[in-house]
Structures are given as C-alpha cells and as structure tokens.
Design a protein around this nucleic acid. Structure first.
Length: 242
DNA sequence: CCTATGATCCGCT
DNA sequence: GCGGATCATAGGG
C-alpha cells in the first residue's frame, strides 16, 4: 500500500497531450501479455497501471480488482452460448483490444480482450487505486473522493473518461494504455466469485488485492499462495471480510 | 452500518 | 418487451 501517488504532477499534460508525463508511468505491457488464458491475464493485471489521456487530461490508476470472462462455457459472459453478436464481437478480436459496453442505461464497463483472435475472452477492470490526475477524476465523479472515486467498474470508466469511443481500439494506440507495475506487488492476491451476475457467479474468476481499500466489495474468497500460477481450482472456506 | 429501490438505455430474444 | 458484468440515495437499525 505504498503511497506512490504522484501528487504534484505538473499540469503540462493539458497543453502537450500528456506524452511526456505518460512515459514516467512505466513501459506498456507487450501485446503477448494479453494473448493468454483470460484468467492468467486477469490475475496478472493486478498491480499494473491503467493510463488514460481522454480529453487531453492524464489520469492513471493501479489495477486492484479484475474479473475474467470466458467464451461459450461461461454462462456469465456476453460470449456465452449465443454466437457472435454486434456487441460481443470485440471479445473475439485481437488480444489487447479494448471492449467497452454500456449497461443499465448509464454505465460504461471497461474490459481488455484476452485469449487469441477468434476465441472469446476478456478481463473486466473492476477497481483501481488512483495514481495520477486525481483532481480530474474527482471532477468527473461529481466531487466524490476517496474509495468512492474508483471502487467499481462503472466508477472506473467514469473517472478515466472511458466511453464507447474506446470500444474496439487497441491499447496503446488510442486514449488508453496499460503499464507494467511500478513496483513488484507485495500485496496478496485473492480469488472469489464474480459480482453482479445472475448466472456464473459461482465460478472463481474475480481477482483482487487483499485488503486494498479500493476493492469494490467484500465477497467470500480464498487467498492465492504467493508465487502460484492462476488457480481456478479448489474451494476454500476462508472469509475475506472487511 | 445495512438493505431496498429507482434510474434509464440498449442489445438481444 | 425484458433485464442487465451498476450506482446513488433513502430509510431503518
């Protein structure tokens, strides 16, 4: 929970488009990173930095909560059973593509496409810890501050200015990019069922940094032993209450 | 602290 | 028409 917050970020981003300041946030994750099993991508995105330059304003946050969405076998996924549709076709596209959809008549959901071309898979960004451009985020979030700023998928999209214009674009080529973790994440990772689904909520596909204050909500989960690869198996009786 | 409910569009059946 | 990978608010304990 090191406060690496770059509080005094110069407002040069507004005039220059943010290029210089962006580079200080770390090197972009390679495309290969996303060309893997959605669960591995979801787990390893924890600690990475999500950067937005929407509206020529730089905002960035550390990813602290994700969910994996799979293909036909996943009843909670937009790519479940039914085939390719206008909305979900991005999920079948190139790894590293941004998938944004609009729901509940008012919220945008930000996902990053995984797996490989032709196979559906994506990772929902559920929560981030603000790193840069906090004043901008507060503005976009109607004055809210603290965890309320970005502790939910709709809040993340709003704070970073993400909308349907980003849908189908590639990370690094548009207004969004993801950077390698600044420091090795020493936080423990937890896994639990996904949030808000009517189907498929039992599958352990939600990943989060244990005890991070920006994680959206407590849910029964288990801790992943340090150094282990993505563990989708096994059920624990641990409670992650907070 | 908690649970309940309304808001408000669009994609899909 | 229905219901949603949600959020903010109102109300009760």
């Amino acid at each position: 929970m090191g406060r690496l917050a770059l509080t005094g970020m110069k407002k040069r981003a507004e005039s220059a488009g943010g290029e210089e300041d962006e580079d200080a946030l770390g090197s972009p994750l390679p495309q290969d990173f996303f060309a893997r099993d959605s669960r591995a991508v979801a787990e390893e995105l924890l600690g990475a930095t999500l950067v937005s330059t929407v509206g020529r304003r730089l905002t960035a946050g550390r990813i602290v909560e994700t969910e994996a969405y799979l293909g036909a076998n996943d009843p909670g996924s937009h790519a479940s059973t039914r085939g390719v549709t206008e909305r979900n076709r991005v999920m079948y596209g190139r790894p590293g593509t941004i998938y944004v959809y609009f729901t509940y008549g008012m919220h945008h959901m930000l996902n990053l496409v995984a797996e490989r071309e032709g196979e559906a898979g994506a990772v929902l960004i559920r929560a981030v810890e603000p790193i840069a451009g906090i004043d901008v985020m507060v503005d976009r979030r109607a004055g809210r501050a603290g965890p309320e700023l970005t502790n939910g998928p709709g809040k993340v999209a709003q704070a970073l200015g993400v909308d349907l214009d980003d849908n189908g674009t590639l990370l690094g080529e548009g207004r969004l990019s993801v950077r390698e973790p600044v420091a090795p994440p020493d936080d423990e990772t937890g896994v639990s069922g996904r949030v808000g689904l009517s189907q498929g909520h039992g599958l352990p596909l939600r990943y989060y940094l244990v005890d991070n204050p920006y994680v959206s909500r407590a849910k029964p989960g288990r801790r992943i032993p340090k150094g282990r690869a993505s563990g989708a198996q096994g059920r624990g009786h641990d409670r992650e209450t907070r």
